[in-house]
Simulated assay, not measured.
Amino acid sequence: MTTLSRRTLLALPLAIGAAAALRAGPAQADADPVYTGRFSSLALGGYDAVAYFREGRPVEGVRAHEVEWNGATWRFASADNRAAFEADPQAYAPQYGGYCAWATAEGYRAPGNPDYWRIVDGKLYVNFDGNVQRRWEADIPGFVARADANWPRILAD
Score class of each variant (00 low, 15 high):
residue 2 T to A: 02
residue 3 T to V: 11
residue 3 T to M: 11
residue 5 S to R: 08
residue 5 S to M: 06
residue 8 T to A: 13
residue 9 L to E: 09
residue 11 A to P: 05
residue 11 A to K: 13
residue 13 P to D: 00
residue 15 A to G: 13
residue 15 A to F: 14
residue 16 I to K: 05
residue 17 G to C: 15
residue 18 A to Y: 04
residue 22 L to T: 09
residue 23 R to K: 14
residue 29 A to Y: 09
residue 29 A to L: 14
residue 30 D to M: 08
residue 31 A to Y: 04
residue 35 Y to A: 13
residue 36 T to K: 13
residue 37 G to F: 03
residue 38 R to A: 15
residue 38 R to S: 13
residue 38 R to I: 06
residue 38 R to P: 02
residue 39 F to A: 12
residue 39 F to R: 07
residue 45 G to K: 08
residue 47 Y to R: 08
residue 48 D to H: 03
residue 48 D to M: 02
residue 49 A to W: 13
residue 49 A to M: 11
residue 51 A to S: 09
residue 53 F to Y: 15
residue 55 E to T: 01
residue 57 R to Y: 05
residue 57 R to L: 11
residue 60 E to K: 15
residue 61 G to W: 08
residue 61 G to I: 13
residue 65 H to I: 02
residue 66 E to P: 01
residue 66 E to A: 14
residue 67 V to D: 02
residue 68 E to Q: 10
residue 70 N to L: 07
residue 71 G to E: 07
residue 72 A to L: 06
residue 72 A to N: 02
residue 73 T to S: 03
residue 73 T to Y: 00
residue 74 W to E: 00
residue 75 R to G: 02
residue 76 F to N: 08
residue 78 S to N: 03
residue 79 A to C: 01
residue 80 D to E: 12
residue 81 N to F: 05
residue 82 R to V: 08
residue 83 A to M: 03
residue 86 E to G: 07
residue 87 A to D: 07
residue 89 P to D: 05
residue 89 P to T: 06
residue 90 Q to M: 09
residue 91 A to C: 00
residue 91 A to Q: 04
residue 94 P to D: 03
residue 94 P to K: 14
residue 94 P to V: 14
residue 95 Q to W: 11
residue 95 Q to N: 04
residue 99 Y to R: 08
residue 100 C to Q: 06
residue 103 A to I: 13
residue 103 A to Y: 07
residue 105 A to Y: 10
residue 106 E to A: 15
residue 107 G to L: 06
residue 107 G to M: 03
residue 110 A to T: 09
residue 113 N to P: 09
residue 117 W to F: 08
residue 121 D to P: 00
residue 121 D to Y: 02
residue 121 D to S: 13
residue 122 G to Y: 13
residue 123 K to T: 02
residue 123 K to N: 09
residue 125 Y to V: 03
residue 127 N to P: 07
residue 128 F to K: 01
residue 128 F to Q: 05
residue 128 F to T: 06
residue 131 N to P: 00
residue 132 V to Q: 00
residue 133 Q to S: 01
residue 133 Q to H: 12
residue 133 Q to R: 12
residue 135 R to E: 09
residue 136 W to T: 02
residue 137 E to L: 10
residue 138 A to F: 03
residue 139 D to P: 05
residue 139 D to F: 06
residue 141 P to I: 08
residue 142 G to E: 01
residue 142 G to N: 11
residue 145 A to G: 02
residue 145 A to V: 02
residue 148 D to S: 07
residue 151 W to M: 08
residue 152 P to R: 07
residue 153 R to W: 04
residue 153 R to L: 13
residue 157 D to H: 11
